[in-house]
């Protein structure tokens, strides 16, 4: 069977399967197990209401448990074993990682990414949101800045190869340098250390639209009166922006910042496509992929390091969610 038919078949089976499960299980509960009539109507209804949520939740819980909760444990256990997976070596993989120079470079780069990308994307997004607000063609501008969001990291990397390439006729940067009289084209992707920032900018380019859209909505949500009051008080546009508007959307800024932070910790595609991790550009996700299929023990150890990096924000997130529910 060709894959495309297999795909259609899967949709059919998956959708009817899901619908049938939900419908039949509810029917079974209402008609057979706890019918809401007869001598025990009241008790049966109460009982059905205890069971029903779990019918609704069951498939999702299975999927979540198997595909997200189990791997956290599974990865940790695997990371305590050697390459073949048979011999328990304790924290050996982690010790090897710490001793290796490549890992240290990846950690350093990752910290740079975590510092630079969310900050830059949020700042650009805030700037774009503020500038396009109330502009007659603001929506068109926003749409274009938002567009990279739809482009894959691989596609985006290719797009930026056209900017970074080391010839005067392909790379925009070199073309501009040439126009100012540079003699030799340079390969910005190979400049030690600074090449990281060129690669990071691709991520900034993708994420700015996301930040802009959300911050723009937050800016619109600011009560107009507070701005008008500030105008009456004689504040300049800059003062209004930094002292009236930004403090009021601080909560949203934090949300945007953390969301991009999480994304940065997942994305290996850009580094993989731009340099494959050469020239000192590895970050942890790409470093992990360099071990994938070769040394699962080492790969899971790197993955677990990423998990540890995420952990504090994850706990903060959960706390925040629980507070909101009260």
């Amino acid at each position: 069977m060709p894959p495309i038919l297999q795909g259609l078949f899967t949709i059919l089976v998956g959708v009817t399967g899901c619908v049938a499960y939900f419908w039949l299980s509810n029917l079974l509960l209402d008609r057979v197990i706890c019918p809401p009539h007869g001598p025990h109507a009241g008790r049966n209804i109460t009982r059905a209401n205890l069971i029903r949520p779990w019918l609704f939740l069951f498939p999702a819980l299975v999927v979540l448990g198997l595909y997200l909760a189990y791997p956290v444990v599974g990865s940790f256990v695997r990371s305590l074993h050697d390459r073949s997976g048979t011999e328990f070596i304790g924290l050996g993989n982690y010790a090897d990682l710490i001793a290796s120079g490549g890992f240290r470079v990846a950690v350093r780069n990752n910290i740079l990414w975590l510092l630079v990308v969310p900050a830059a994307a949020t700042a650009f997004g805030l700037l774009a949101a503020q500038l396009t607000d109330r502009l007659s063609w603001g929506n068109v501008a926003k749409s274009l800045i938002f567009m990279p969001m739809a482009i894959s990291f691989v596609g985006a990397s290719l797009i930026w190869r056209f900017v970074y390439d080391n010839s005067f006729d392909i790379g925009l940067i070199n073309a501009v340098r040439g126009a100012f009289g540079a003699e030799r084209a340079i390969d910005v992707i190979q400049i030690p250390f600074w090449n990281n920032f060129f690669i990071m900018f691709i991520m900034v380019w993708i994420q700015t639209g996301f930040a802009m859209v959300i911050l723009s909505a937050a800016l619109r949500g600011i009560p107009e009166e507070t701005v008008e009051a500030a105008i009456m008080d004689g504040a300049s546009p800059t003062q209004i922006f930094f002292r009236i508007k930004v403090p009021q959307i601080m909560g949203t800024i934090v949300v945007v910042w953390t969301t991009i932070t999480f994304l940065v910790l997942k994305v290996f595609d850009i580094v993989y496509t731009m340099t494959g991790g050469n020239f000192g550009t590895h970050i942890l996700p790409s470093y992990m992929m360099s071990f994938m299929f070769r040394d699962d023990g080492r790969a899971t150890a790197v993955a677990f390091v990423i998990m540890i990096l995420v952990l504090p924000v994850m706990i903060w997130n959960i706390r925040q969610a629980r507070r909101e529910m009260r």
Binding site: P36, A41, G42, R43, I45, T46
Partner: peptide
């Protein structure tokens, strides 16, 4: 009707 659902 303590334990009867609203609709009934």
């Amino acid at each position: 009707v303590n334990d009867i659902p609203p609709a009934q």
